[in-house]
Amino acid sequence: MSNLAPPSSDAQIAQTLLEARRSGQVANADAVVIADAAQAYRVQAAVSEAMGWFADGPARHWKSGGPGREAVLTHAPLPPAGVWASPADARAWPFHWRGIEAEIALRLGQPVDRDHAGRLDQDSARALVDAMTVSIELVDSRWAQALDAPGWHKLCDLQSHGALVLGEWVPWRARDWATQTCELRIGGHEQVFTGTHSLGDPSWLLPQWLRHATRDGAVLPAGTVVTTGTWCGLPLAQAGDEVVVRFPGVGEASVQL
């Protein structure tokens, strides 16, 4: 006989996260059991509905990515209140902690529905993108265990999303991503990364993301944005740090914490 606890209900998991968001206090991940990715995505939707984030239509900002092309990618819609143009000031934003992901964000140039998404390959998906920009995702968690929480817990918590900063948009064009450098400065500490995107090409995830985002019949409008995964791992910043990310040839973004 298995000693594993049965999965918690969608409602119980969603309520735990809602209480954490509304109270500003982290929840104990051990208090709920999440069965699989399907349940985590249902909880994402339940929390989003209860918070009223997308009452006016589909999410306009998403995060998507994974550790490699052989992995199942994960996706999360992002609350609009935490999306800011660079240079951003996040000093008044409530964080439990401040992980930094330096990324490239892509923008759709036309609407995409479920039928269209189902027919996409890499080339036809890339043709839907009209612009790109440098983005900084500020990673946070509603779980006390933070990055040590189980994977499905992080997924139902919008994949540990805190806030998103977007730089100036420039026209999308193919680049040699293997030689692309990413310059990161957190406070006084600077690092440079070259060709370190986990998928090799930030646009590689587009077909999977678009099929996921339209799976329930939603039509993504032109202008929908997806940020595509970190180039720098997940270094931690502190309150008071200025974070600056620069991708030569693309642009830069900054946020004051």
Rank of each mutant, 00 (worst) to 15 (best):
W152C: 14
E168Q: 12
G167C: 06
L166E: 02
A149R: 03
L166N: 05
L164A: 00
A163F: 03
L147I: 14
P150Q: 11
A149K: 05
P150D: 10
P171F: 04
C156E: 04
D157T: 03
T179P: 00
V165N: 03
W172A: 12
A174P: 06
L155S: 09
L164V: 00
W169T: 04
A174E: 12
Q159C: 15
D176K: 04
L147T: 14
W177N: 04
V170S: 03
G151H: 13
L147M: 15
V165G: 03
L164W: 00
Q159A: 15
L155R: 06
L158M: 15
A174H: 09
L158T: 15
Q180L: 11
V170E: 03
L147W: 14
K154D: 06
P150G: 12
W177I: 04
D157S: 06
P150S: 11
P171T: 02
C156K: 04
L166I: 01
A174L: 10
W172Q: 10
S160A: 14
Q180N: 01
A174M: 09
D157M: 04
A178D: 11
V165M: 05
H161P: 00
W169S: 05
L147E: 14
G162R: 01
P150A: 12
V165R: 02
Q180D: 06
H161L: 05
A149H: 07
D157R: 04
K154M: 13
L166C: 08
G151V: 15
W172K: 09
Q159M: 15
W172N: 08
A178N: 11
V170Q: 02
G151M: 13
P171S: 08
T179M: 12
G151T: 14
R175E: 04
L155D: 07
H153R: 10
L155F: 10
P171H: 07
G151S: 13
W177A: 05
C156D: 03
K154I: 14
C156A: 08
